[in-house]
């Protein structure tokens, strides 16, 4: 029964992640983020022209943007299975996973607020726009706890054949954690590869996050199948 629930939660995350991607691309329309050098007038014009679309996107993402939560719970349950005594790594991972979802929740809200009343002075709309974009790309605070906990378990704890945490996933997770740290650099430049729309700040974390969560989901689903077969026999 619990295996079925875990499977549903993984697909819940994946489905909501897809909704996030589609709404972000087609409705919010800021994928990739526009140049950080846009003038307040350009920013205000964007939100004026696309007000309805952006607000509709914000509405849908009010339902779907916390998508990392279910998978963080499944990862925690699977980690706790392998830990002896108090599952401290599972708890750290869950805290990190839950908290980092907040930074996926906030940008759509601020985009929606920017589009809510775009006839306000352009400077104010620009400030809201900047809050949204910088929250999206610079927030590495909690990733690191989730990733270190997972890597620690992959590399430091005894695994069994039913574990979804092979050692190479530990190394993949360390690499992903290192790459996410680049996002914070977006506070410094407005152009180039470290600007908020740059290769190292926007595209790498975006692609690596997608890859990491897909690999993790695949490994969890495969492990659940093994656990199910084991429980049946």
């Amino acid at each position: 029964m619990t295996i079925r629930a875990q499977r549903i939660m993984i697909w819940w995350t994946l489905a909501f992640m897809l909704i996030f991607g589609l709404s972000y691309y087609f409705l919010i329309g800021l994928l990739p983020l526009p140049p950080a050098t846009w003038t307040p007038e350009q920013v205000a014009a964007f939100y004026t022209e696309n007000a309805t679309r952006v607000r509709l996107g914000a509405m849908i993402l009010s339902w779907a943007s916390a998508f990392p939560v279910p998978i963080a719970v499944v990862i925690a349950v699977q980690m706790a299975r392998l830990e002896k005594g108090v599952p401290i790594l599972a708890i750290l991972q869950l805290c990190g996973g839950l908290m980092m979802s907040i930074f996926l929740v906030l940008p759509p809200i601020f985009w929606g607020i920017a589009a809510f009343n775009p006839s306000r002075p352009p400077e104010i709309t620009t400030a809201i726009h900047e809050i949204a974009n910088l929250i999206l790309v610079t927030t590495d605070q909690y990733f690191i706890f989730q990733n270190v906990a997972i890597a620690w378990l992959c590399l430091g704890r005894v695994q069994d054949a039913k574990s979804p945490f092979p050692r190479w996933i530990g190394y993949l997770t360390i690499w992903a954690a290192l790459m996410f740290e680049l996002g914070a650099i977006a506070f410094l430049p407005k152009t180039g590869p470290f600007a908020w729309n740059g290769l190292f700040v926007f595209w790498f974390p975006f692609v690596i996050f997608g890859t990491w969560i897909s690999v993790m989901s695949w490994s969890l689903l495969a492990a659940l199948t093994r656990q199910e077969a084991d429980a049946a026999s």
């Binding site: 190479w168 530990g170 190394y171 690499w175 790459m179 590869p193 790498f204």
Partner: peptide
């Protein structure tokens, strides 16, 4: 070493190679 560590190493090489090209 173990094969898994090469995931990290090749990943890093990929990122740094991108940087060199950039």
């Amino acid at each position: 070493g173990e094969p898994g560590v090469w995931v990290l190493i090749l990943g890093d090489l990929m990122v740094f190679s991108t940087f060199f090209v950039m």
